[in-house]
């Protein structure tokens, strides 16, 4: 136990909430937001570790994760818009046409 441990625990909790949310929601937009929550939780852990080890690299990783998240959201939301046009809805369970 040291001063960053609570942050790590919080990070783990947020991550788990995000993960469960991803798996239980049907709305594609909600799933995306949950993924953002998970990424954010991971970022928190990165920053905490950066402080614990006295190294800047953790913070730089967060920077890159943010970049990737931004790119992912841009493409993901574009996909959702395209799907919405085709399916008139954002229920991921309707997107099972690969089957059969």
């Amino acid at each position: 136990m040291n001063e960053t441990t609570p942050y790590i625990l919080l990070s783990a909790l947020l991550f788990s909430i995000g993960a469960v949310s991803v798996l239980t929601r049907r709305n594609a937009i909600m799933i995306f937001m949950s993924v953002e929550l998970m990424l954010n939780a991971a970022n928190l852990a990165f920053v905490a570790f950066a402080k614990q080890w006295g190294q800047l690299d953790g913070q730089l990783f967060v920077f890159f994760v943010m970049t990737v998240a931004a790119a992912e959201v841009a493409v993901g939301l574009a996909l959702i818009v395209a799907i919405f046009r085709a399916k008139k809805g954002t229920d991921v369970d309707d997107l099972s046409v690969m089957k059969n």
């Binding site: 001063e3 441990t5 788990s16 402080k51």
Partner: peptide, 30 residues
Amino acid sequence: ALGLGVLLLIQAAYVVFTRVVSSSATKLID
């Protein structure tokens, strides 16, 4: 999903309390 989420949390906590080295950097980084 709920069960797995809880399991994941327990695992993380277990790791944090048993495995994480409890040393920390003495001075703040720039």
